[in-house]
């Protein structure tokens, strides 16, 4: 975990150096069988590029969409995801866990 989150931060800084706006999502709390522990990170740039992981891939898309708003207005936010519903369009965790995330913009 230490190593991959370091890569996330190093990549985020590289994106900043390239002149991109960047948001960072961090898992702050988990319940049940969620795949990534508290402290796991995902960085998102203004073009939608992703590095890192906050789940097994179940919610990264939804986090990236919210991150673009955080990049635009600079307001940090909390997000929470629970179990996926039967309906195909709901975003959630197939593993039955729940997680809470903090999403923030990195101020250049």
């Amino acid at each position: 975990m230490t190593q991959d989150s370091e890569d996330v931060l190093l990549t985020a800084r590289q994106w900043l150096d390239d002149g991109k706006s960047v948001a960072l999502a961090t898992v702050i709390e988990t319940w049940g069988s969620s795949p990534r522990p508290a402290g796991s990170r995902l960085a998102i740039d203004q073009d939608g590029r992703l590095v890192g992981s906050v789940s097994g891939g179940c919610i990264e898309g939804a986090v990236a969409r919210r991150a673009s708003q955080v990049i635009a207005d600079g307001e940090p936010c909390l997000m929470e995801f629970g179990v996926a519903d039967e309906q195909a369009w709901s975003v959630g965790l197939a593993c039955g866990g729940r997680i809470r995330l903090f999403v923030e913009r990195i101020e250049p």
């Binding site: 931060l9 800084r13 923030e104 913009r105 990195i106 101020e107």
Partner: peptide, 8 residues
């Protein structure tokens, strides 16, 4: 997060 903090 501020860039300076990320650098630190």
């Amino acid at each position: 997060m501020r860039r300076r903090l990320l650098d630190r």
